[in-house]
């Protein structure tokens, strides 16, 4: 991580780039990263916290093994996205933005993925599941769990 941060030179204008890179690599922004960036770019830690908590792209907590993102765009909303989200919340036992205790699943929402023809839509580990019905939610979760099992075999 230090290496990654030290590669950047310059000032505040690099901050969001660095945060993107760390988020991509580690899945979250560890606290040590913040103090390292602070030294590298010569800006205060509080300023960095301000920026990283402002944007949705960055998270201070690690995400779960699997990421489920439910689209809450307008087109999806009128086609029943809130019901889909509720079902995910219920099945996983978490609120959106949270991670299950076993660290398996993180549930998030997104303002719009721009695939409105397929609404309501959710992304599970990057794969799109369109024209979703509430009863399909369980299947998606099980598929993700199986994927884990298969790959660990």
């Amino acid at each position: 991580m230090e290496k990654l941060i030290d590669e950047f030179e310059g000032d505040q204008r690099e901050l969001i780039h660095i945060l993107h890179e760390i988020q991509k690599k580690f899945g979250y922004i560890p606290a040590q990263a913040v103090s390292r960036i602070s030294k590298q770019l010569k800006i205060s830690e509080s300023e960095i916290f301000g920026v990283l908590t402002f944007y949705k792209a960055f998270s201070l907590k690690p995400r779960g093994e699997h990421l489920i993102t439910v689209c809450m765009g307008t087109a999806c909303h009128v086609r029943g996205a809130p019901m889909i989200l509720d079902e995910f919340k219920r099945k996983l036992g978490i609120e959106s933005g949270e991670t299950t205790e076993d660290n398996q699943f993180t549930l998030e929402t997104v303002n719009c993925v721009g695939a409105c023809a397929l609404g309501p839509i959710a992304k599970a580990d990057g794969e799109y599941h369109g024209q979703l019905k509430t009863r399909e939610v369980d299947k998606i979760i099980k598929e993700l769990m199986n994927k884990k099992r298969n790959s660990s075999k």
């Binding site: 809450m72 765009g73 307008t74 087109a75 909303h77 303002n111 719009c112 721009g114 695939a115 409105c116």
Partner: peptide, 11 residues
């Protein structure tokens, strides 16, 4: 392009 339900700029 942040408006939910709009994706022409992306396309």
């Amino acid at each position: 392009e942040g408006d939910p339900g709009a994706y022409m700029d992306r396309s």
